[in-house]
């Protein structure tokens, strides 16, 4: 038994489609299948990295789980309760238990609210404070937790640097004592030296508070350093998942392989990345038929443009590829 043995979140065929509207009457002419039958599992206390390139739907999955956008179909079990089926009132407590940290701390903080009000908003909303004095005390504690000077709680977001603002967002997310935090590109907008500070902070908080992270990112260096398990997404579908170590050492899906081969290294003895995927990521509004990856795939088979590959399960993860099917049998 290890520390990550209880399942906290499990999605089943989670799909979020956005309508494409055209013309004067805004008739729906099609759908962008931003998330299309997504199955992910997160165990308590672990970090699952959801990886993919822009437009693959990774942010949509995060927002759908938090019900910031409504799912089209599918279920998301959190502690065996289907979040997608809950009435708004019943979902209220899960709003507390699931929090999010976004990419751009500048636009996710209200410029007209002081830091104290921003961090304290959740505490108030969930009735976790007795009076004003208690609020000040709790906000001060949260600010110290993320290494911010609590004397600055009456200032406004613009008076802080990018890294400090991200700390404010983290303190705000921690305030209602959540269990799972969706980190949506939480360190992508930061300079390397600041990014390291925030990653160390997230790591420390996870150990201290037994937090579970759904870490959404495109940065493979961060994933390799930070994640326990990885799910790779391409145009709305999960194409591979598994323990981080196995994904990096033995990727199964051709897209995962391309992604890893494309990432340049800082080791001066390893130079010259080989582009392993052909062309660009297609538009999610018009995904290719069959396996979405087939037009870019260097090892595609004849059937790949017709049939959708099934999820092939191995002892150490899943791969959604006809070639994996052959490996398995």
């Amino acid at each position: 038994m290890n520390k990550h043995d209880t399942l906290l979140l499990r999605t089943e065929g989670l799909s979020t489609w956005f309508p494409i509207r055209r013309g004067l009457l805004r008739k729906t002419v099609g759908h962008v299948r931003a998330a299309d039958g997504v199955n992910i599992k997160i165990r308590r206390g672990e970090t699952l990295a959801l990886v993919g390139e822009s437009g693959c739907g990774k942010t949509t999955v995060g927002k759908t789980i938090l019900r910031l956008v409504e799912a089209t179909s599918g279920r998301a079990f959190y502690d065996d309760v289907d979040l997608m089926a809950l009435e708004p009132g019943a979902f209220h407590d899960y709003r507390r238990r699931l929090q999010i940290i976004m990419q751009d701390p500048a636009s996710s903080l209200d410029p007209r609210m002081t830091v104290r009000d921003s961090i304290g908003e959740g505490l108030r909303a969930f009735g976790m404070v007795s009076d004003d004095e208690d609020l000040t005390r709790q906000v001060a504690e949260l600010m110290q937790l993320v290494s911010l000077d609590s004397d600055t709680m009456h200032r406004y977001p613009h008076e802080f640097s990018g890294g400090q603002r991200q700390r404010i967002c983290i303190a705000r997310a921690l305030a209602p004592e959540p269990e799972l935090i969706v980190c949506d590109e939480a360190v992508s907008a930061l300079d390397v030296s600041i990014q390291a500070q925030i990653l160390n902070l997230l790591e420390r908080l996870q150990a201290e508070r037994n937090l579970t992270y759904l870490f959404i990112t495109h940065d493979l260096g961060v994933v390799r350093y930070f994640a326990d398990r990885v799910a790779v997404m391409y145009l709305g579908r999960i194409v591979e998942d598994g323990p981080a170590e196995r994904i990096f050492s033995e990727p199964r899906h051709p897209y995962t392989r391309a992604l890893l081969a494309s990432a340049p290294s800082i080791d001066p003895e390893h130079r010259g990345v080989e582009p392993a995927a052909l062309g660009d990521v297609p538009s999610p509004a018009r995904p290719p038929s069959g396996c979405h990856y087939h037009p870019r795939c260097p090892v595609r088979l004849g059937r790949c443009d017709r049939d959708v590959p099934p999820e092939v399960n191995f002892a150490d993860g899943m791969s959604r590829c006809f070639l994996s099917e052959e490996q398995e049998s």
Binding site: V192, S193, A196, L199, I266
Partner: peptide, 17 residues
């Protein structure tokens, strides 16, 4: 350079400036 996350640093704290 020490602040850049990569495989070799897994399990170690990143160097902060």
């Amino acid at each position: 350079l020490g602040a850049i996350p990569h495989a070799a640093q897994r399990g170690h704290e990143l160097n902060e400036i």
